[in-house]
């Protein structure tokens, strides 16, 4: 089985037309570690220059992945939050300022958010599953996680359909209104899930044999460099914390 898959992969390689194959990007496991490290840096030294350096690292990674537009968008949001905290909140009355405080808190944890955006935007679900299998996450958890990721867009769509339909019926009272959204939504999601479960069972997801993946993942020199830089930032961050 495994040998077969490998041979098909090699054929695809020789024809050089495999759009979904990884083309020199980081290993998903490296991206997961980076996300964790960004959280550690932010909670070791919130609002410090270390967080900024860490964000800079992600900006470089985004540019290497050819997503400069996203860098500008993220930076614009960050600058917006910082301007709000620095210039707008001080001139507002304290009562209104408190209202905006949580947005400022968003500025503190922004590097983690950037790391998460990087993970999501540059990793396909297939790559992610391959990585989780490689670090021996239990299969049940992987299946559930994949189902969760698959259902997010479906729930949004279902929700808008159900809301449109319930508008026609004009339900009265909060209780009835919640029922009219909730019951069809829950039924929809659980029946779609049952169909999906039947489909994946038919494709042999419960087969206990070793699973193979279309995506070949592995550590490369790039992973080593990025991880070394990230660990160095974290080490500097801890050193700074101990010193002060």
């Amino acid at each position: 089985m495994h040998a077969n898959v490998m041979r098909i992969d090699d054929v695809m390689d020789s024809h050089d037309r495999a759009p979904e194959r990884d083309d020199g990007g980081l290993d998903p496991r490296t991206k997961l570690l980076l996300t964790l490290l960004s959280c550690f840096v932010v909670f070791t030294a919130p609002l410090s220059s270390f967080s900024l350096v860490f964000m800079g690292l992600f900006c470089i990674l985004f540019i290497i992945e050819r997503m400069p537009k996203l860098v500008f968008e993220l930076l614009a949001v960050y600058v917006g939050i910082m301007c709000l905290a620095q210039f707008i909140i001080p001139v507002l009355p304290a009562q209104v300022g408190v209202m905006l405080a949580v947005i400022c808190y968003g500025g503190v944890i922004f590097p983690c958010a950037v790391a998460a955006v990087y993970l999501v935007k540059t990793t396909s679900v297939g790559q992610f599953v391959a990585a989780l299998r490689a670090i021996h996450i239990p299969n049940t958890l992987i299946v559930a996680l994949t189902a969760t990721l698959r259902f997010f867009p479906a729930i949004r769509e279902d929700f808008s359909h159900v809301r449109d339909a319930s508008r026609l019926r004009k339900p009265h009272g909060p209780q009835r209104r919640v029922d009219c959204i909730y019951v069809p939504l829950l039924l929809n999601v659980s029946s779609t899930a049952a169909d999906l479960a039947a489909s994946v069972t038919a494709r042999g997801i419960d087969n206990p044999c070793q699973k193979t993946s279309w995506h070949r993942i592995g550590f490369s020199a790039g992973d080593a460099i990025v991880l070394a830089v990230a660990l160095a930032i974290y080490a500097a961050c801890i050193a700074w914390r101990v010193m002060t």
């Binding site: 189902a147 999601v189 999906l196």
Partner: peptide
């Protein structure tokens, strides 16, 4: 697991 993942979503 699929059911848990879907409703968990």
């Amino acid at each position: 697991a699929v059911m848990v993942g879907a409703l968990g979503a």
